[in-house]
Structure formats: structure tokens, C-alpha cells
Nucleic acid binder design. Sequence first.
DNA 1: CGACGGGCCTGACAGC
DNA 2: TGCTGTCAGGCCCGTC
Length: 286
Amino acid sequence: MPELPEVETIKLGLSKKIINKKITDIVVYNKKSFQGNKSDVLQQRVIDVERRAKILRIILENSHSLLFHLKMTGQLIYIDRNKRVAGGHPSHDWHDKLPNKHTRVQFTFDNGAGLFFNDLRKFGWCKVMNQEEVEKSFGLFGPEPFSNDFNLKYLLDKAKRYPARTIKQFLMDQTVVAGIGNIYNDEALFLSKIYPKTKVSKLTSHEWQKIITNVRKVLTKGIKYGGTTDSDYVDADGKSGGMQNHLNVYHKTGEKCQSGCGGIIERIVIGGRGTYFCPNCQKEKI
DNA sequence: CGACGGGCCTGACAGC
DNA sequence: TGCTGTCAGGCCCGTC
């Protein structure tokens, strides 16, 4: 599931490839996957590529934007079929295989390259928005985890508003903090040694401080390793990430805790979401 | 073959 | 009444 590090990785890859290129064609294979007017996008040059929360934004010269939410199974793969690279093309595996049956929207650029929006589950979307609409929708998100606005005072304040929530649900809420999903949530709580069902009203300032530090730590590590590939996630070159080899708890039910504490990782459900933790390191508050 | 998962939105509902 | 917070259900389809 693409979370902040995965979308950031795609952004870094895509910006190297599509800035200054003009979109010359759009093919929509699944109507619900593309919302808005093609005419606002066609023949427009890409000015920049950004990320806000888990949303990827391609900014065009006419100030319209293409926004993508990949939800769980979305992919954005860029392929330049004209490019010949010694030793093989980085996206060689995908080269002659796109579009495939999961391709929902296909963009073509003025250099002949293609950008393929694939999405097995069809939960993801691509929306065309003008400047005002983008600002409005981005304004609904909480602070970015790396911004100064994500601080102790802010969190204590928010926690007061939602005292009954568990810390797991609290961090998943995109209006509280933007970009955290199931994987990095569990990993950050593990590093913070906090039981995921702990009510936010019970957390101390020291614990909140640990949460801030460790949220940033796991997201930074995720970006460093190019994201987590659990099932479908690939970067803009179609390559898998590497962070799945550096996780402590996510999808590790029954395995020994990496800390060496002797605990066995457990899975519970919080707010309908699978949650992984070490019952030894992350003790329930009594 | 049916159950399941999962981010996010919507609508229903509870509480003050 | 009206606002706010919480929760269940729906969207999908490959995997188990």
C-alpha cells in the first residue's frame, strides 16, 4: 500500500523523467479511474511533480494539476520505449507488457514515452483539478510529518479533541498527520514501545515526543530503501522497494521480535485494520 | 466457491 | 436543533 515513502519515491523518480515534457495523449481504460476533463491536461507541459500526504501531484503549465491516489494497489510506471540502455532498460520487465489488464489510464508524452496508471483493485483514482481545488483538498490534510507543524503542542491539542481514540487510529487519520498508513504506523509504534490500542489521552509528553521522532525515523528509512513492496507497489521505473526487508513487525505474526526481547509478534485488529506489535516491547497500560 | 483485506469516503447514529 | 465524533458499510478483485 503506497504510503508517504512510496509516493515520495515515485515522485522523485517521475520528476526526473517528465518535467518539461508535454502530455500529448490520454487513454482511459476504466472510466472511474479518471475524473475531470482531458482537455485541461492535453498539450500541457509538466512544470513540477509534488507529493502531499499520499497524493502525487503533477503540475501543468496552465496551472491545472493531475492528482493521483494509489490507495492499495495503484502503480505509476514510466516507460520510454525509444530509450536504449546498455545492460538493459531499468523497466525492462514492464517494457513490452504495458498496458496490461490492470492499466486504468495511459498517458503519452511528446517524446513518445508512456505513463501507465495501473490499479488492480480500482480503488485508486486520477483527478484533474485547478489550483483552487487542489489547495482546498490539500488543506484538509493535517501537517506533513517532516514539517515543524508536526510537533508536541499540536499533538497534545489534537489528542484532547479525540481522547477516546487509540494511538493507532489517531495516526492513521490523515487530518491529524498526513501520509502515515498501516505499515509505517505499526513500525513507528514498535520503535516507540507503545501498545497500539493505548488511548491517546493516556500518552505522556515523553511518549508523544518518541512518536514524533520515530514516525520521522521510519518514514525516512522507508524513503531511503525506496519504499515497501508488500504486494503491488513499484516505483516509477517499475522496480520493487527494499524496505520490506527492514521491517520489525508488519506482517510478521509469529516471528521473534527483532529486539531480542524474546517476544513473539502478534496481530490484532484495531478499527478494522490488521495491526502488528510485540506484546513484550509494547505493553498495555494498566 | 466464499471469505478476506484494506485507504478512504459516505451515511447512520449517538452524545452533548 | 445542530454540531461533533465514531463506526459500519461500500468500493474492488486476486489470493487463500
